[in-house]
Design a protein around this nucleic acid. Structure first.
Length: 988
RNA sequence: GCUGGGGUGGCGGAAUUGGUAGACGCCCAGGACUUAAAAUCCUGUGACCUUAGGGUCGUACGGGUUCGAUUCCCGUCCCCAGUACCA
């Protein structure tokens, strides 16, 4: 073995051996448990950035671990290679999108391979190649047959200057990203996939995967789909001149009963507040408004037109839009109270959600409150909060609310009530025998030590102020109904359900559920995507292509200008075709599919990448899928992960797969950010590489000033690392300077995987140092180490490449208690820690454990030349285990060291080696340290056998000199002994 | 605003889920080796006090529960992320 560790040499050697031995190629093998490890596929921008490296380093570490644990691991890679950047490059530089994409893939694959990631490259998929997008089209046709793909009019962002459709990002701020002209909305016919047909399944399925997914992702998906349970309520409309009023009957929005009544339907989640309604507010686009525009006064019509125009303006998220609206002069009757309410148009009501009409209840809804205040509408309170009620009925307090609220009340109730009852309804708790109600302020005063009587008199004013403040905002919680006719006195929470039922039985509404999730618009007026396989025929209409005509190929060479409608529309060869039904001349659809289509099912293509008939063989899918672990950035928490889940459910309904959820477990890794320095004169950004920037820092480690190599002061900040930001560390450079193993080790050690990672150069140097230390250790012991490997589990089954290697199952040395015994204990404790952490998907803490083990080997008192057989055995076991466990972080280095250990250069780790086995009897400590506390303060420590009884420990504690100091002459109140943990003596 | 997640040394972060707070690494300081430097190795490294044995404080802040709280409960402040008038 080389005296020094040369990462580059080692890495190139093992990358070659792995490739030659096809080490990472996996096939279906019913005998072995499978593990499908998947990382989100990248867009081939041309450069790997550190975010990618982090993502693939985690995935690869897990892959190595599972492989060493004996799983048949599938670890594939592919390219999300359709999409806008290729078209932008074509526009800007006149390059061919296909060539540009292919070149980028070649460059990035080279970078990936230099990092040494263990992929089965045979299974690589490319979204932009016809062999793949053929099946995008295949799925589209299937969904069309299933009624899940349909076409309808919708609005797109449109730049009339460039004659181009724009994505929301390209139209941000309401201006075209290219020419800066204002963006308008344009109606276009677009294809949609019916994701809404699966909304409930997508929501309910979250429960199935909840345990394996980050809570934040589950939450965001659930919010995105936005299920709200509530009720529809129909309000009868009255106009001053009824004969002029026209109520179009629109499904779900309005209704006309047999009595000829004209009704507007509102959606509300809080029917219980309906007695507090002061108006009905409609969206400007509401059909009832639009149908009756001529009956309104000119001022009203103008205002409505104005609101409508304002609504189409793309909104800037930062600015809160001021409430606006107008009274139409129409009236509507509250079906519960019989009260007549004015009908308004309001800019805060959206046509796209619910029914485009709301009942305005200012006392109990913040938006309605704001609206009522602005226009001087009456505000009537119909719910009182629980506390106020409690004063009237002091025996029983019902608390209805979320977990947090209930906790808050529960802890207060403990002080003031004799009994707490947890009701069956998990949302409620009930305190019995409560003394008094109290406001927040009173409770705080009380807990600060105020006397009850004094509190009431002295703080009376303050309490009133507090109550007044509460009246000045909308009260949106549940409570008890007042001013609500026959419902007064009821709990509003219960009334909500009962009132919805009343609406249904009275024929003026029903319980209803609405969703935020819309159908998925997949049409893109772009070139670089899968063509939608549809033909328009003058006689047959919309005709799906025949399966045998797939793939509908993209033309090879077409001018791309970035303006005008879909570029494909300009290619006559593409557009002109024959009707698949009647063979007469017809036109092709020229829109292409959203690239999210490609990423919705790519992970199934890996299972069967060259299948020409089907997207994949269902039998192969039955073995490999679902994905056991998916890893990627949380920027895909919503769209991609909902679409992929939707696609899976559709495939299940098509009979291709037999499960509901594609990803059992999801890991979202945090961003990699870097300190970025700006040269003020040139505007250039620099990443802080050694020697390029001199930095001074303040006491907190924050940058105080930065100076470039040539002495110029620089500006600085922290930004996401990427090529486009100009602050990306180039992975190739990392590999060149430090080696791939060190880069991977550092990136996994530096922070928990879900945290943001601030890249710093000193840290990676630490990783190199650690690898060098391990290298030196092995070299130091090398003369004594040759022979069969020395750890149980190390080598059970060995592949054809490496040859058979015997297991050397060491027995614990007879002379327990020496330094060898200590090292063996550390070795086995480490094995347990590392395996447990990997199983928990923790990648930073095992490194610390491995460093400790390596330090322990380094601290071994005996030199190799004087070591006894047992001592050599202990060291050999420790080094063998260390090397094996280091593999997921530094596979090249581990292979090289392992080859030294066993004298076999064939790549044993990649070809059948096993993770070391933890042996409990060896890990067990001979002695444990027992801290002794007096009144909870640490005063002394005892050494004891782990099996020492509680009584014995107590006796030992009292015998301790230091303990005596604190206990002599004191009364012993209590002694707590926690076995193997501690002794706490309470004295007075 | 709302929702979710957080707040532990100079820094990244540990802590068996209620039981010795600060593992491991980085930075920094001192020492050994060297003609010298680099590399390497050793020592120290939460704060304050100290009679050198230790003592006191310390996990954003204020309370509570407990023999014991970074961990559980309540309140306050701050940071990050998501979201945006979703009725």
């Amino acid at each position: 073995m080389d005296e020094k560790y040369f990462p580059k040499k080692v890495e190139q050697k093992w990358q070659r051996i792995w490739a030659e031995s096809c080490a990472f190629e996996a096939e279906v093998d019913a005998e072995k448990p499978k593990f499908y490890a998947l990382e989100m596929l990248p867009y081939p921008s041309g450069n790997l950035h550190m975010g990618h490296v982090r993502n693939y380093s985690v995935g690869d570490a897990l892959t190595w671990y599972k492989r060493l644990k004996g799983f048949n691991v599938l670890h594939p890679f592919g390219w999300d290679s359709f999409g806008q950047p290729a078209e932008d490059a074509a526009v800007k530089r006149g390059v061919n999108p296909r060539e540009w994409t292919e070149d980028n893939i070649v460059a990035m694959r080279g970078q990936m391979q230099r990092m040494g990631f263990s992929y089965d490259w045979r299974r690589q998929m490319f979204a932009h190649r016809p062999e793949y997008y053929k099946f995008d089209q295949w799925f589209f046709l299937k969904m069309y047959e299933m009624g899940l793909a349909y076409k309808r009019m919708t609005q797109v962002n449109w730049c009339s200057h460039d004659q181009a459709t724009l994505s929301n990002e390209q139209a941000s701020g309401g201006l075209c990203w290219r020419c800066g002209n204002p963006v308008t909305k344009k109606d276009l016919e677009q294809w949609f996939l019916k994701t809404t047909a699966y909304t409930d399944q997508l929501l309910d399925g979250l429960a199935e995967i909840e345990a394996g997914w980050p809570a934040s992702v589950i939450k965001r998906q659930s919010d995105w789909m936005g299920r709200s349970e509530g009720a529809f309520v129909d309000f009868e409309v009255k106009a001053t001149d009824d004969s002029l009023f026209y109520c179009p009957i629109v499904d779900g929005l309005t209704s006309a009963s047999d009595l000829g009544k004209k009704r507007i339907r509102v959606f509300t989640t809080r029917v219980d507040t309906i007695y507090g309604a002061n108006a009905i507010v409609l969206a400007a686009e509401h059909p009832v408004i639009q149908a009756n525009l001529d009956t309104f006064s000119e001022a009203v019509s103008e205002k409505i037109a104005h609101i409508r125009v304002e609504n189409t303006r793309p909104t800037d998220h930062e600015i809160e839009i001021e409430k606006d609206g107008i009274d139409t002069g129409l009236a509507a009757v509250n079906p519960f109270s019989g009260e007549e309410l004015p009908v308004w148009v309001g800019n805060y009501v959206m046509m796209e959600y619910g029914t485009g009409a709301v009942m305005s209840v200012p006392a109990h809804d913040e938006r309605d409150f704001e609206f009522a205040q602005k226009f001087g509408l009456p505000i009537r309170r119909v719910i009182l909060e629980t506390y106020t009620i409690a004063e009237q009925a002091p025996e029983i307090v019902d608390v209805i609310g979320d977990e947090h609220e209930r906790n808050e009340y529960r802890s207060e109730l403990r002080e003031t009530t004799t009994d707490i009852e947890e009701a069956d309804d998990s949302r409620r708790i009930r305190g019995v025998g409560r003394e008094t109600g109290a406001t927040n302020l009173e409770r705080q005063t009380a807990s600060a030590g105020g006397d009850a009587v004094e509190r009431r008199s002295d703080l009376g004013m303050a309490v009133e102020d507090e109550r007044e403040r509460q009246r000045s905002v909308a009260f949106t919680d549940y409570g008890f109904l007042i001013n609500s006719g026959e419902w007064s006195g009821k709990s509003s929470y219960d009334a909500k359900t009962e009132m919805a039922a009343r609406a249904a039985s009275g024929g003026f509404g029903e319980a209803a559920t609405t969703y935020r999730l819309r159908d998925w618009g997949i049409s893109r007026q772009r070139f670089w995507g899968s063509p939608i396989p549809i033909v328009y025929c003058d006689s047959c209409g919309i005709v799906p292509e025949k399966y045998e005509n797939l793939p509908i190929r993209l033309p090879d060479d077409i001018p791309i200008t970035g303006t005008g409608e879909s570029p494909l529309a300009k290619v006559a060869d593409f557009v002109e075709t024959q009707c698949p039904k009647c063979d007469s001349p017809a036109r092709r659809e020229t829109d292409t599919m959203d690239t999210f289509v490609d990423s919705s099912w790519y992970f199934f293509r890996y299972l069967d990448p060259s299948n020409d008939e089907m997207p994949f063989d269902p039998e192969k899918a039955a073995y490999w899928t679902p994905v056991d672990q998916y890893i990627g950035g949380d920027d895909h928490a919503v769209m991609h992960l909902i679409y992929a889940r939707f696609w899976t459910k559709v495939m299940r309904d098509m009979g291709l797969v037999k499960f509901d959820e594609p990803f059992k477990r999801l890991l979202t890794q945090g961003m990699v950010v870097g300190e970025t320095f700006f040269d003020d004169e040139t505007g250039k950004k620099l990443y802080h590489m050694p020697g390029t920037v001199t930095v001074t820092r303040d006491a907190k480690g924050k940058i105080a000033s930065a100076v470039s190599a040539d002495g110029k002061p620089l500006k600085f900040g922290i930004e996401r690392m990427s090529k486009s930001k100009g602050n990306g560390v180039d992975p190739d450079e990392m590999v060149e300077i430090y080696g791939a193993d060190a880069a991977r080790l550092f990136i996994l050690f530096a922070a928990p995987i879900e945290n943001e990672l601030v890249w710093n150069e000193a840290g990676i140097e630490g990783a190199v140092r650690f690898l060098q230390r391990v290298w030196r250790l092995v070299r130091k012991w090398e003369p004594t180490l040759l022979g069969p490997p020395a750890v149980a589990g190390g080598f059970t089954s060995i592949s054809k490449y490496a040859g058979e290697v015997e297991i050397d199952n060491l027995q614990p040395p007879a002379t327990a208690g020496g330094s060898d015994r200590k090292l063996r204990r550390k070795t086995h404790q480490t094995i347990k820690r590392v395996a447990d952490d990997f199983d928990d998907l923790q990648f930073n803490t095992p490194v610390a454990a491995l460093m400790e083990l390596s330090n322990a080997i380094g601290d071994f008192e005996v030199e190799p030349e004087n070591a006894s057989e047992d001592e050599v055995a202990a060291v050999r076991e420790a080094i063998t285990a260390l090397t094996l466990m280091l593999t997921p972080y530094a596979p090249h280095t581990s292979e090289e060291l392992f080859a030294v250990l066993i004298g076999n250069d064939n790549g044993i780790l990649a070809n059948g080696a096993r993770f070391p086995e933890y042996q409990e009897d060896l890990a067990k400590a001979d002695e444990v340290e027992i801290p002794v506390q007096i009144n909870g303060k640490l005063r002394s420590r005892l050494m004891a056998q782990p099996e020492t009884s509680n009584e014995e420990l107590e006796k030992m504690a009292f015998a301790d000199e230091k303990v005596r100091e604190y206990t002599d002459g004191k009364e012993i109140v209590k002694v707590i002994v926690v076995p193997k943990r501690l002794v706490n003596i309470v004295v007075r």
